[in-house]
């Protein structure tokens, strides 16, 4: 599904990714862990097409398409979704309108019929209920006045409605309490299927208790320095990154 090969990227003059390679097969959930500044968020932004990052080398293909050549909206239409670590506030943009515009833009790009207001609202209400979100979150402006947890849940709601093939969750667990964590994990687990993959960027083992990954990758200084099964996450939780990073150095 996602194949990253020797990816290099920088922001302004600062090199962040230095030859990152990763294979994410269809139907799998992989976790990317690593210390602060290792390039985790950069990986998410580069894959989603943020213009602030310059790709200086390597490739990334998504279902055999050259991901790096696509505009951000084309990546979304192809089925990629990035749940932001710090979701943006959009004052003056109604959350329900935002979601419907996004869904219909993607449906249009895929050659599917657009959903009308009634059909959309039915879907959005059902999904927000499943995520235990208050109804009025749909009526409010996008993320404006939302608590940290509400913002994260709003990201998961977008994911649930847009139904991506590949979800990249950038520290979606940070700032969530135990209940919210479970809800977020359930939201991702609900999408699990042979056609769905997820890249879960996280600091902590906690989320991975609910969202069990097929593989765990450790990112350090812009490269994957170690990969393993779910037990690797527990090892990191117990011993910290220092050992792993030192081994690789």
């Amino acid at each position: 599904m996602l194949s990253i090969n020797n990816l290099e990227a920088r922001i302004e003059q600062k090199q962040i990714l230095r030859g990152l390679s990763l294979e994410l097969p269809a139907g799998q959930v992989h976790a990317v862990m690593g210390p602060n500044g290792s390039g985790k968020s950069t990986l998410g932004y580069v894959l989603a097409g943020h213009e602030g990052y310059e790709v200086t080398g390597g490739t990334a293909t998504f279902n055999d398409e050259d991901l790096l050549a696509m505009e951000p909206e084309a990546r979304a239409a192809a089925g990629l979704f990035l749940a932001f670590q710090a979701p943006l506030e959009l004052p003056g943009v109604n959350n329900a309108n935002f979601l419907r515009t996004a869904l219909n833009a993607i449906r249009r790009a895929r050659g599917e019929a657009e959903l009308d207001a009634v059909g959309f609202l039915r879907l959005a209400r059902a999904e927000s209920k499943r995520l235990a979100m208050p109804d009025d979150m749909l009526k409010r402006n996008v993320n404006v006045g939302f608590s940290g947890g509400e913002k994260k849940r709003n990201e998961v709601l977008q994911m649930a409605i847009l139904r991506p093939k590949l979800a990249i969750l950038d520290e979606t667990d940070s700032g969530l309490d135990i209940d919210a964590l479970r809800i977020v994990a359930d939201g991702v687990n609900a999408l699990r299927s042979p056609d769905f993959s997820a890249l879960v960027i996280t600091h902590h083992q906690r989320l991975l208790d609910h969202l069990v990954p097929d593989r765990v990758h450790v990112l350090s200084q812009g490269r994957i320095i170690r990969s393993g099964g779910p037990e690797l996450a527990r090892e990191l939780e117990a011993n910290g990154y220092a050992g792993v990073v030192a081994d690789a150095a």
Partner: peptide, 29 residues
């Protein structure tokens, strides 16, 4: 705002439509 624009585009909203949404939001008040 470049970040708001990217947020909208990352959700599949084409660039021109995303700009129009942000302009409308600016006018809303």
């Amino acid at each position: 705002d470049a970040e708001q624009l990217f947020y909208l585009r990352s959700r599949g909203v084409p660039d021109a439509e995303a700009r129009a949404i942000l302009v409308r939001a600016f006018l809303a008040e």
